[in-house]
Simulated assay, not measured.
Amino acid sequence: MAYVVSATWTVQPGKEDVVRDAIEKLTPPSRQEPGNLFYQAYQDPAEPSVFRLFEIYQDEEAYAAHGASEHFAEYGLGQAIPVLADRERAFYETIG
């Protein structure tokens, strides 16, 4: 079973470019992580302050490694998350 993460980041007004830049920098190294199977961010055209991230990892440990990575510390924790108005995450396991 793979470990699935669905995140919704709602950005403070006027900070959309900060988060978009962080995601663009965070995506390539996240996709290269050994335990990453899929990593894709989306921005809602109807609500430009809402970003969604859909991630699939080999297991929960691989997701924990992502959260402990240097690139997540720099671009996620250091750049994007400080300008969020809200952050929601949901966790799942694949079937079959």
Rank of each mutant, 00 (worst) to 15 (best):
E47V: 01
K15E: 15
E70N: 13
G76D: 10
Q40Y: 10
A46I: 01
Y92K: 09
K25I: 05
G78N: 08
P34H: 04
L84Y: 12
A64M: 11
R20Y: 12
Q79H: 03
Y39D: 04
E47K: 12
V19P: 14
A2Y: 06
S69H: 02
A90I: 00
Q79K: 06
I56K: 10
Q12Y: 00
A41C: 01
W9A: 02
E33Y: 03
G14Y: 14
K25L: 12
S49P: 00
A46P: 03
D21I: 01
A85I: 01
H66D: 08
A65I: 03
S49F: 07
V4A: 09
Q32R: 15
L37N: 02
V19G: 15
L53H: 14
A90T: 00
V5Q: 13
T27V: 13
T94Y: 05
A80C: 08
S69W: 06
H66K: 05
Q12M: 12
E16H: 04
E16Y: 09
A80Q: 05
R20P: 04
E24R: 05
K15N: 15
S49Q: 11
R52D: 10
A73E: 01
V5M: 10
D59G: 08
A80R: 08
T27F: 03
E47L: 07
A64R: 15
Y57K: 13
E60W: 13
Y92V: 13
A68M: 12
G78V: 01
Q43T: 01
P34N: 06
F38Y: 15
A2G: 01
P34C: 04
V4M: 08
S69A: 14
D86I: 01
E60A: 15
P28V: 02
D17T: 11
I95D: 01
Q32D: 02
I81M: 06
F51L: 14
A80E: 04
G67V: 03
V19N: 12
I95P: 01
G76F: 02
Q12D: 15
A22R: 00
D86E: 04
A90F: 12
G35C: 06
T27N: 06
L37Y: 05
L77A: 13
A73V: 14
Y63I: 04
V19H: 11
A2N: 09
F72P: 06
I95S: 00
V19K: 02
Q43E: 11
G14F: 12
Q12P: 07
Y75M: 06
Q58L: 08
S30N: 05
L53C: 04
V50I: 07
Q79P: 03
G14E: 15
D21V: 01
F38W: 09
Q12L: 15
E93Q: 15
V18I: 11
L37V: 10
E55N: 07
V50N: 14
F54Q: 10
